[in-house]
C-alpha cells in the first residue's frame, strides 16, 4: 500500500497543484470574467516565495502567505482598469498582463535570474500541505456556491444586464472574482515553487494558460466538482496508455475541441446538469399528470 502511494505521489502532487490553479481560473469564469490572468498570478506567487526563501531565509509558511497576498493585491489592482472591458477584450488584456509579467521575469535578471530562473529552491512543501491548501480553496468555492456571492456570480455570468437591474454591483463582484482568482493563483504559485526545486519564466507562459483552461473546459465552469474532474482526467490519461502520454498536446487539443463542441458544460458540470434535468423532467411529468387528474 505504502509503495503504491510512493509510486503515484508525484502524480498526486501535480494533480493537487493543477487543481489549485484550476480553481483560480474557475472563479473568474464563474463570475463572467473572461480572464486568463491565473498564469500571471501563479508566476508572481512562485517568484515571491522562491525569492523570500532562497535570498532572505524566510520561513516557507510566511513565504507562501506573502505569495498569496501578492496575488490578492495584484488581482485587485488588475480589476480596477479591467472593469471597463468585456469579453474577448478582457481576455486579451489579461493575456497582455501575463506576457508583461513573463517578459519582466526574463528581463530583471538581478532579481529573478532571467531565463535561467531560480534553481536552488529547497523542497519545503509536501503532499499534506498541498492537500490542506486544496481543501481550503474547495471549502471557499463550496461556500461561494451556497451564498449570495455565488448567486451574484452566476447571475453576472448568465446575463449581466439582468444582474445589474437586480442591484448586483458588476464592478464589485468582478473585482471580487479577480481578487479571489489572484489569491488562489498566488497561493498555488507559492506552493509550486517550494515543491518543484526550480522555476523559470517560460513555465508560466502561453502553455500554462492553455493547460489550466483545458482542465476547466473539460471539467466545468460552474460547479465544485468541475475542476476536480478536469484535472483528474488530465492527470490520469497519460497513465492509461503510453501513446496518450507521448502525444499529450495532441490529446489535449482533441479534448478541447470535442468537449467544447459536444459537451460545452464540461464533464463534471455536464453530468450534474444531466442528473438535475432528468430529475426535473420526472417532476414536470408528475405536475402535468396531477393537473390532468383535476379537471
Amino acid at each position: 500500500m505504502m509503495s503504491y502511494y510512493q509510486a503515484y505521489q508525484p502524480i498526486i502532487d501535480f494533480f493537487l497543484l493543477n487543481l489549485g490553479f484550476a480553481y483560480s481560473q474557475q472563479v473568474a469564469l464563474r463570475a463572467g470574467v473572461f480572464s486568463v490572468a491565473t498564469a500571471g498570478f501563479g508566476a508572481l506567487g512562485a517568484y515571491a516565495s522562491a525569492i523570500l526563501v532562497t535570498r532572505m531565509g524566510i520561513s516557507p509558511a510566511l513565504a507562501i502567505a506573502t505569495a498569496t497576498l501578492v496575488g490578492t493585491a495584484v488581482g485587485f489592482l488588475l480589476s480596477v482598469p479591467l472593469a471597463r472591458l468585456r469579453g474577448v477584450f478582457q481576455a486579451i488584456a489579461t493575456l497582455a498582463f501575463v506576457e508583461v509579467i513573463v517578459s519582466f521575469l526574463y528581463y530583471a535578471e538581478g532579481i529573478t535570474g532571467g531565463a535561467i530562473g531560480i534553481n536552488n529552491i529547497p523542497r519545503m512543501v509536501s503532499t499534506p500541505a498541498l492537500l490542506a491548501a486544496v481543501a481550503a480553496v474547495m471549502y471557499v468555492t463550496w461556500a461561494i456556491g451556497r451564498s449570495g456571492v455565488g448567486r451574484a456570480f452566476d447571475a453576472l455570468r448568465q446575463d449581466e444586464t439582468v444582474a445589474a437591474c437586480l442591484g448586483v454591483s458588476i464592478r464589485n463582484y468582478h473585482a471580487l472574482a479577480f481578487v479571489l482568482s489572484g489569491a488562489i493563483g498566488g497561493l498555488f504559485g507559492g506552493l509550486q515553487s517550494l515543491y518543484v526545486f526550480s522555476i523559470e519564466p517560460g513555465q508560466f507562459g502561453f502553455g500554462f494558460m492553455v493547460a489550466i483552461l483545458t482542465a476547466i473546459v473539460l471539467g466545468g465552469r460552474g460547479t465544485l466538482i468541475g475542476p476536480v474532474a478536469g484535472c483528474a482526467i488530465l492527470a490520469l490519461l497519460p497513465e492509461i496508455a503510453r501513446p496518450l502520454a507521448e502525444n499529450r498536446p495532441l490529446v489535449n487539443g482533441v479534448i478541447l475541441i470535442a468537449v467544447i463542441i459536444y459537451l460545452p458544460q464540461g464533464v463534471g458540470d455536464g453530468l450534474l446538469l444531466q442528473w438535475r434535468n432528468r430529475r426535473s423532467a420526472r417532476r414536470a411529468r408528475a405536475i402535468e399528470e396531477a393537473s390532468r387528474a383535476v379537471p
Binding site: 469579453g87 483552461l213 489535449n252 478541447l256 467544447i260 460545452p264
Partner: peptide, 17 residues
C-alpha cells in the same frame, strides 16, 4: 465567444504537435 477561443486553441495544439 468563449467556445471559439477554446476550440481554436485545441486546433493549434493539434497542428503544433
Amino acid at each position: 465567444e468563449f467556445a471559439a477561443i477554446v476550440a481554436s486553441i485545441g486546433v493549434d495544439l493539434i497542428l503544433v504537435s
